[in-house]
Nucleic acid binder design. Structure first.
Length: 258
DNA sequence: ATGGTAGAAGATCTA
């Protein structure tokens, strides 16, 4: 079963890309970030007419996540537990199919500028994500955390790591929080399958970053032990970054034997 | 040191 995460950077602006990409790539399950739309305004038919169940968690203007699936989605929950006052739409969970597999789609806060309140929010959000991962691990059923983590885990995950030293995506505290997730026993699927440097999922729109391959790897799949046992493959699909009116991110895939 | 781009909302913020 092919599952994919894709930060689409605005569902309305990206509809032509989404249509072409769904028709060509044919994912079984896709997780979107930055839909930048309220649920009522999401172009549902673009997704549903292609045979997907669609679950959205949007807000006005910014953020917003969604899950699309050809298998039934059940037990859908919206919002990351741990802070009732958090109104940002950055998290959605659902069971996919009937195997007990649970999928967590996330759009982790950017955190810039750091230090500052936005960075404090990012770190607090990562603590809540770790707590959620601990709860899911205790269930002993397979699950995956996937989405735009806004974390560059290692220097090998950036073309120019020195340019990111002071950035919220690469600060030591950010990387340590990501590492704590891995130390719970979660597996970075793309890193597992591609141990070398030079695998990127984001290229800035500015300064010809894509043409110069000045990228970073910030969109990830973290698999529970049971899900990692079922990992067939993991890869980044670079081509949609070069289409007309692209997102600044590109799809990141896993193939799981679920 | 600066500015370069994009999306959504709406004349600015976020990334």
């Amino acid at each position: 079963m092919k599952l994919v995460t894709f930060n689409i950077n605005g569902v309305k602006a990206r509809t032509p890309v989404i249509e072409r990409w769904l028709d060509e790539a044919k994912p079984d399950v896709a997780v979107f970030q930055e839909i930048k739309s309220v649920d009522e305004a999401f172009p549902r038919s673009v997704i549903e007419d292609r045979g997907y169940q669609l679950e959205t968690h949007g807000q006005k203007g910014f953020n917003g996540v969604a899950i699309l699936s050809k298998l039934p989605l059940t037990n859908v929950t919206r919002g990351l537990p741990g802070d009732e006052s958090d109104e940002q739409a950055r998290y959605i969970e659902a069971d996919v199919g009937d195997s007990g597999f649970r999928l967590c789609g996330l759009y982790l806060p950017n955190g810039n500028p750091a230090p500052g309140p936005k960075y404090d929010y990012k770190l607090a959000w990562m603590e809540r994500l770790e707590a959620r991962a601990r709860d899911l691990l205790a269930r002993e059923t397979p699950f995956a955390l996937t989405g735009d983590f806004n974390v560059i885990p290692q220097p090998a995950d950036a073309a120019r790591p020195d340019a990111w030293r002071e950035d919220a995506l690469f600060l030591p505290q950010t990387r340590a929080a990501f590492r704590r997730l891995e130390l719970l026993g979660l597996y970075d699927a793309v890193r597992l399958r591609h141990p070398g440097p030079g695998i990127y999922s984001f290229w800035d729109y500015q300064a010809g970053a894509r043409q110069r391959n000045d990228g970073i790897r910030i969109d990830h799949w973290l698999l529970s032990p049971g899900a990692a046992d079922r990992l067939q493959d993991a890869w980044v699909e670079g081509a949609p970054r070069d289409w007309e009116k692209p997102s600044d991110h590109t799809p990141v895939w896993v193939d799981l034997a679920l």
